[in-house]
Design a binder for these strands. Structure first.
Lengths: 203, 203
DNA sequence: GTCTATAAGAGGATAGAC
DNA sequence: GTCTATCCTCTTATAGAC
């Protein structure tokens, strides 16, 4: 751990403020509708200054995703530390966190179609590293949970992994919230149930 | 049924060609990344001519969605006509069609964030009518399936409805396809299983 | 590194001839 | 209703002073 000068600390603090704003705006409007002007305005600096910190809009989005994956990895560590928790318990815990975060408007989401963004992300080492690490950790839990007989063994582990990742942008949360009939906790419980138990009745 | 002049038939045929193109482009790139120039180029007419048929980009998207909902309603009728099919069977059939259509790149999808689009759709009578009719038909099946004990009674019917609608834009299909490890039929089966049976093992 | 000002270009929409 | 040409706004990105 290198000691940081005051200058460097201020620099990092500002970048953190930028990334937090980007995360929120990405969650609110998505990548295409988020404008760099808007980010600069909300952070309270000029757009040109923003471009001194991040070279492009894509880099902004990547930084937001990296920070979010860092939070997810913290949740993974936290789940790992719970004594006596099964692999399924851990997967449920991280999924619940994902749903809560999205419902709170703090889960940045990226369009799967935008190719310029996609290429930028694939080229971003920090992003790819985070994604790989998260996939590895969750993948191990999935295989374990299948061995435990807790998750459906007929499903390919990667299909389960993708299904869990997809909870980060599940539109059902927003629909239920819009209805106004359920509280956040209830909504999360409902989606947890549809995800793990399915729509069909259990015997 | 009024008789149509040759002129009117040509007019309708052209509008149908436009809508088909829009549907495909919406499925490929989404609303924000689809450009009107592109639509005009693919249809093979000038952009200004396009605007004689549809007054705005939002109207184009709405027309595409209306046509797609029409197809969905046809599927509903087809499922209705199957003798001896339970409510669950019918819901599974329409869900399967949705997944197949999306996987084939023919399911136009709309961003939930874009407010200008959202307002245009809400103001579009044909769109709202189709949506209502589809919701009513599926809603009736859902209630019936719950009464049959085939669908989880603890879930609010609207949550089930939203979950089924959300299959139209489920990113898991694309992820699995990208992996290249599974054929379309297998992918549909996998997602059908996660949707109705859930990720957890069944006893 | 922060600012103001502006370049550069994409994209939605329209004018006006035919 | 179709075309060409154009308008106008929005948005990303940069130049250059301080």
């Amino acid at each position: 751990m290198t000691k940081l000068s005051f200058r460097q600390k201020v620099h990092l603090a500002r970048e953190d403020a930028i990334v937090s704003t980007v995360k929120r705006l990405l969650a609110e409007k998505g990548f295409d509708l988020m404008t760099v002007d808007e980010v600069a305005a909300e952070v309270g600096i000029a757009k040109a200054s923003l471009y001194k910190h991040f070279p492009s809009k894509e880099a902004l989005a990547a930084a937001a995703m990296v920070q979010t994956m860092g939070l997810a990895l913290q949740q993974v560590q936290a789940a790992q530390a719970v004594p006596g928790a099964s692999a399924l318990d851990k997967l449920r815990a991280i999924t619940r966190w994902t749903l809560q975060t999205q419902l709170a408007g703090e889960m940045p989401t990226l369009p799967s179609e935008n190719s310029t963004l996609r290429n930028a992300l694939i080229a971003d080492k920090a992003y790819m590293d985070g994604l790989m690490q998260l996939s590895d950790e969750l993948g191990a839990w999935i295989v374990q949970a299948q061995a435990d007989g807790a998750l459906n063994r007929a499903l390919p582990p990667e299909a389960i992994l993708y299904t869990l990742f997809a909870r980060a942008c599940d539109p059902v949360l927003g629909f239920l919230k819009l209805g106004g009939q359920y509280g956040d906790a209830q909504i999360v419980d409902i989606v947890m149930s549809t995800c793990f138990d399915g729509l069909a009745a259990r015997a």
